[in-house]
């Protein structure tokens, strides 16, 4: 069967956005259940942490470059640097590791 490129793209756009919209239409009020509230409080930090490590080590050509960038990023963020400065520190460290 010959597949249409446009149908492929349409499915991608539709399914991906439906996943995003579904909770918004279903959950309109503040959740009061203590466990659920606590769960949702931790979700963002856990998700971002899981996605950061070890993935950052696969973004660079040597895992060490990503790992060192991560350490520098953590230190910069610990001292209260914002999104862009921390990202820039990570990029510069990764770039230096790449060319060394």
């Amino acid at each position: 069967m010959k597949h249409s490129l446009l149908i492929y793209l349409f499915i991608m756009v539709l399914v991906t956005n439906l996943i995003r919209v579904l909770p918004m239409t279903l959950i309109r009020r503040r959740i009061t259940h203590p466990f659920l509230r606590s769960f949702l409080y931790y979700v963002p930090y856990v998700t971002l942490a899981v996605m950061t490590f070890p993935a950052i080590m696969q973004a660079t050509s040597s895992p060490w470059g990503g790992f060192i960038a991560l350490l520098f990023g953590i230190v910069a963020a610990w001292f209260g640097w914002g999104l862009f400065p921390v990202a820039a520190v990570c990029c510069i460290v990764a770039f230096v590791c790449e060319i060394l």
């Binding site: 971002l48 990202a87 990570c90």
Partner: peptide, 10 residues
């Protein structure tokens, strides 16, 4: 690596 840097900052 920039994307991960932003995650770290968050």
């Amino acid at each position: 690596v920039a994307l991960y840097g932003m995650f770290i900052a968050i």
